[in-house]
Design a protein around this nucleic acid. Structure first.
Lengths: 148, 148
DNA sequence: CTTATTATATCGTTTAACGATAGAATGGGC
DNA sequence: GCCCATTCTATCGTTAAACGATATAATAAG
């Protein structure tokens, strides 16, 4: 087994990861440039970028951010202390907390989000290319030995 | 300011993040299913997926993983203790350490990497779609009229 | 041969995420 | 109405990865 026949796939996979990491790192730097922890910006984004019709409750945010609910509670605590978000108890179900951005939170968020969208105009094509490569490699993996 | 004109862009951005997080979480679960920390699998991938012609030195790996070099040192320590990688001093420059997978490391890595490629056959299209959306939104940001 | 640079390693600190746990509000079955 | 299970949010102690600062060794430059 001198060289695995999937070597090209591994390289494509690693390259994809590299591009993602680059993208995420740039995002983290942007967040810190606004005196925010990266995770705090992610929370703001999740609140403002909630799919239409859904409310940014603690639970819903946990799902969107793919973290445990208590992690969201902690992030909201920190952002509330910074005056960027506020908790609003739901009228219909008083167990539920709906997270909203303050005016200041909105200003900070929009500045950052637009930076990120601008960045994506630049690196978007590279991400698309890397993703395309790895998906192609993944398909080759499938056709090598057809069993489904 | 009932609704920001970039609202669709924020949703696209959040959706893209959600898909990425999903992908990364699945990767982390896969790593743990092999009794590895997610970051340890990432190191294995970076070693085996190094661009052709480049050696997986501590420095090069730090660049590829987008972390500080001492972080790579620590990851290598842990993986070496598990018997999955080994350090090899470069002959030409004895400051340099080249990281290599052991036979066991290769077996573990290949199992995981193939799982990940298979997963990408499934969710690849969703990632492509989300990325396409956000890049489109980013382009609109550029061409939109600059009000307020 | 002296100094600067590059590459790796060590150590103490920080902090976000987590599991476990608790408590409050709601709903279903009767 | 009442009990019990469920749902939603909050608290607390622990863990572990990443980092900055620092150290050591090899090499290059002058």
């Amino acid at each position: 087994m001198a060289f695995d026949s999937h070597q090209a796939g591994y390289i494509a996979l690693a390259e994809f990861r590299y591009r993602i990491r680059h993208f995420l790192n740039a995002s983290e730097r942007a967040a810190r440039s606004a005196a925010l922890e990266p995770e705090q910006y992610q929370l703001l984004l999740a609140v403002r970028g909630m799919p239409r019709g859904q409310s940014p409750t603690i639970q819903a945010l946990a799902e969107r951010l793919q973290v445990r609910h208590n992690t969201v509670v902690e992030r909201v605590d920190r952002l509330a202390k910074l005056g960027l978000v506020r908790r609003v108890r739901s009228r219909s179900d008083r167990r539920v907390v709906i997270v909203g951005l303050t005016a200041r939170g909105n200003r900070v968020f929009e500045k950052l989000a637009r930076m990120r969208l601008r960045e994506l105009r630049q690196v978007g094509p590279e991400l698309v290319a890397a993703l395309g490569d790895v998906v192609k490699a993944a398909r080759r993996l499938g056709t090598a030995r057809r069993k489904n």
